[in-house]
Design a protein around this nucleic acid. Structure first.
Lengths: 131, 131
DNA sequence: CTCTGTGCAAAACTTTTGCATAGCC
DNA sequence: GGCTATGCAAAAGTTTTGCACAGAG
């Protein structure tokens, strides 16, 4: 893969922003450095990088898939209240894989564990609102 | 919710076909009974039923979300080889929820655990191809 | 110089929506 | 008869793609 300053900006944006941005969010962030970049380039790079395993595409029930630069498998928490996506550090995944192989004979290659609910900030907020 | 033969067909199609069809697949199946049904109706019903908890929408990295008539929480296995989606009966999910609440203070309301890999059929197939 | 990556715009695809009409209650 | 669901078609939103040109090796 040949160097391009666009890709460099995309990777930097993903590394700096830890909020698992959508393609559109990456586009807006990169446009600050590269005003002429096009959305097509964003998608081309994100797909290419995802294919090479340098980042991960996360399908969500809400509009717009998200992208995550982390490569180690981990779960995601999507707060239905504030819309933020958080990480969950977990070793549960390996255990799950083994169990799936044992019980269903299915060889897992990739996970996508997306839990929706309420993050601790929003829970604290709603508790404050009530009282 | 008022009765309609369209919705009845949709629910029957989902109940009969266990392969977690996409909206388009539901459309094709229902069209056999209701040749004049429109895709808009399919989506309207699927969304309405999902909202009422009668079925579940599953986001996938491949094009087209899928719909699943089962209501009990369970995981999905997407075979990257044959494209089929299978179910995984598991009690792991409750355990995960508790752990997430303990470690991250995040109250889980809904899961989406999608594991991609190779199903047992395809593994057997590829073993046959090699030998 | 060659060949990959980009910008732009159009296209493809999935999903939603507005509106007049049909059908359930 | 009233009101919800439908069919049709247009629109909206996201993602992909074709093409000519710019830039890296």
């Amino acid at each position: 893969m040949k160097y391009s300053k666009q890709r460099e900006s995309i990777l930097r944006a993903l590394a700096e922003k830890l909020d698992h941005p959508t393609a559109e969010m990456v586009y807006q962030a990169v446009k600050l450095e590269q005003p002429n970049i096009s959305l097509g380039t964003i998608y081309r790079n994100l797909n290419q990088l995802a294919e090479q395993g340098m980042l991960r595409r996360i399908s969500t029930p809400v509009s717009g898939d998200r992208f995550d630069i982390r490569t180690a498998p981990h779960a995601h928490l999507l707060c239905t209240c504030c819309g933020r996506m958080l990480d969950l550090e977990e070793d549960l995944l390996d255990a799950i894989d083994q169990k799936v192989l044992d019980t269903a004979g299915f060889q897992v290659q990739d996970h996508q564990l997306l839990l929706s609910g309420t993050c601790s900030c929003c829970m604290a907020q709603s508790r404050r609102d009530v009282s």
